[in-house]
């Protein structure tokens, strides 16, 4: 009995030291779990933040439990307009996003909200801190945080 010979082997990039290519791919089933309402809301063109029911700290992101007092939070609708708190333009990135370079990342601040929201800034030639921006939503959902992005408020 002999093992069948293989005609397709891995790509060898160097013979000595012997270096072979290895491709390993994974498909995960990742649940947004308790944060699911945030992503559902993006489908209704709404942004949800979390407000602590005990100390009233208002987060611009989903947090089930308050970082400061441990109190339970409840969802609230974030304003759809805010200002650029900080920004950058990425001319390089990780592999999945290389083809999108250059792109702007931004941190958005909202009135009467204690923390920020990280997002893509789109259609803005030169972002600046303090620039008024408004949320836009994708029509066809990706079921990711990319379903919302911010543009300059004219």
């Amino acid at each position: 009995m002999k093992l069948p010979e293989k005609t397709e082997g891995p790509w060898v990039t160097s013979f000595d030291p012997l270096t072979r290519q290895w491709t390993y791919t994974v498909t995960y089933n990742v649940s947004y779990a308790e944060d699911s309402p945030f992503f559902h809301a993006l489908g209704h063109n709404k942004l949800l933040g979390s407000e602590c029911q005990k100390c009233r700290y208002r987060y611009a992101t989903p947090r089930t439990v308050c970082m400061y007092c441990g109190g339970p939070t409840d969802w609230f609708e974030l304003p759809l307009e805010g200002r650029v708190h900080s920004w950058t333009t990425c001319h390089f990135s990780g592999e999945p996003y290389l083809s999108e370079c250059p792109f702007h990342l931004g941190l958005i601040e909202f009135d009467r909200v204690d923390t920020l929201f990280m997002t893509r800034l789109v259609g803005i030639e030169q972002p600046r801190i303090g620039m008024p921006v408004r949320a836009c939503f994708r029509r066809k959902k990706t079921w990711s945080v990319n379903d919302v992005y911010f543009v300059k408020k004219e």
């Binding site: 990780g94 990280m118 945080v145």
Partner: peptide, 23 residues
């Protein structure tokens, strides 16, 4: 869920910190 999908790039995150430090 919230930061990586935006562009998955640590230099970008630190860059935003630097821009705010400059401001």
């Amino acid at each position: 869920h919230f930061d990586y999908p935006l562009g998955g790039f640590y230099t970008g995150y630190y860059a935003m910190m630097a821009v705010r430090h400059m401001h």
